[in-house]
Nucleic acid binder design. Structure first.
Lengths: 140, 140
DNA sequence: CTTATAATTGCAATCAATTGCGATAAGCCA
DNA sequence: TGGCTTATCGCAATTGATTGCAATTATAAG
């Protein structure tokens, strides 16, 4: 129950509560290796607990984002994807607008820009798990 | 009727048609100096032509994007903004997550990244009128 | 000018996501 | 253990955006 303790203390520190719904939702996200959508989380939980509302899923995802336990990315196709990120290397994605392929990208690629914007404009960018759109080598 | 001719030929070249709705929609966008939302375009046109449907606005915006006559940007706040871009300098925006301020940014800032991704991954990014989120100097 | 045909429109339904609200229950204290 | 406070939940309604479809209409051909 490592992860649960972690969630519990993370919540308590900020005055939030540990509820069965939140446990179930985080559990589904943790047991998924890659990305998952709000709808998929909802239907996975509903299999065992039919009363969960989709709005609770969205509110919990918002919360887990604030606690830095998950990342949110709009990979195109109109659906937002979520991913458990504790213990994983931070990264971005290149998404091909034509074939939909996604390529992982280390964060260091964008770090020069982050530094430049901080120096020049005093602006601190949020470059966390971006989706960068374009055309992949194969589709060019 | 310069701009209209331009629209007309741009449409014809790709097999599209020039309709009153499209003329009215583009007209509203052109007469706006900055950003405008789909809802604002719709209500502006509806003042003189009450039958225009919001779906037609969205479909036309999609078309004008394809023709490179306008740019689309999600500036946060959940609403997508559009801008007439013919004859204007290409740019991006820094958007402060706290105070909402937006700062214009020349495209050259991101060009090194564009080149790097093309060299390293053969990936050609779409960096057109981006919204880059973070915290401005004032809010840090 | 008239007709044909395919693009386009308006409408209604739908989708992903968000919000207000009254009911419920998690966590704290006695 | 039992009661209190307030965060959280489920529900229903709403928002911004998209889509399927039948009716309409811009354009090309006769």
């Amino acid at each position: 129950m490592d992860q649960l303790d972690e969630l519990y203390t993370a919540l308590r520190e900020t005055g939030y509560r540990l509820t069965p719904q939140r446990m179930m939702i985080l559990d589904v996200i943790r047991h998924r290796t890659g990305h998952i959508t709000a709808e998929q989380i909802h239907s996975a939980v509903v299999d065992t607990y039919p009363y969960l509302d989709i709005s609770t899923v969205y509110r919990t995802l918002e919360l887990l984002k604030d606690l830095h336990l998950i990342s949110e990315t709009k990979l195109g196709g109109g659906v937002t994807q979520y991913e458990y990120k504790v213990g994983k290397k931070p990264h971005h994605h290149l998404v091909c607008r034509k074939c939909g392929e996604t390529i992982s990208l280390g964060v260091q690629v964008l770090q020069p820009v982050e530094h430049l914007l901080l120096e020049e404009y005093g602006f601190q960018v949020d470059f966390d798990h971006l989706a960068i759109f374009g055309r992949c080598a194969h589709c060019l």
